[in-house]
């Protein structure tokens, strides 16, 4: 009946030149099936566009899907812009082709969760749900 409860809202975004979105779509679909409301950005979004979408859609999480190897500069730019705009209530995740040696650097940038390719979907889902509960 009454269905106006708070839902987990998450933006799955494809920044930059990256033209591969099969993985992003699989994740989006899985999160939907786990009961979340997922906004998919489509390809080739600039950082300021991604932030605009996150603001207008009032999402709780921003998930970046990056396969190009440029995950560090892109994530850094996003984190800087978020700070600049005073946005503190949206947690950022990064997924895609992420070598394990880059994980500490991403964490240092303030990323809330990192899901390298091959991470079981269930793990991603559980992680997001646990973070949402704390929020």
């Amino acid at each position: 009946m009454a269905d106006d409860k708070k839902r987990i809202k998450i933006l799955i975004a494809k920044p930059g030149l990256d033209g591969h979105d099969r993985g992003a779509k699989v994740v989006a679909q899985a999160l939907k099936e786990a009961g979340m409301e997922v906004i998919y950005s489509g390809l080739h979004k600039r950082i300021d566009q991604i932030i605009n979408i996150a603001i207008q859609e009032d999402v709780d999480f921003i998930g970046l899907s990056i396969m190009t190897g440029a995950h560090i500069p892109i994530t850094q730019k996003l984190m800087n812009k978020l700070k600049e705009k005073g946005i503190t209530d949206k947690m950022v995740f990064v997924g895609g082709v992420i070598p394990s040696m880059d994980i500490p650097k991403l964490k240092e940038l303030g990323v809330g969760g990192i899901f390298p390719g091959g991470t079981p979907l269930q793990e991603t889902i559980e992680f997001i749900k646990s973070k949402a509960q704390k929020a």
Partner: peptide, 13 residues
């Protein structure tokens, strides 16, 4: 989705 209560919102694309 009636099954999961989730949704995939893709119109922006």
């Amino acid at each position: 989705s009636i099954k999961s209560n989730g949704a995939l919102l893709g119109d922006r694309v």
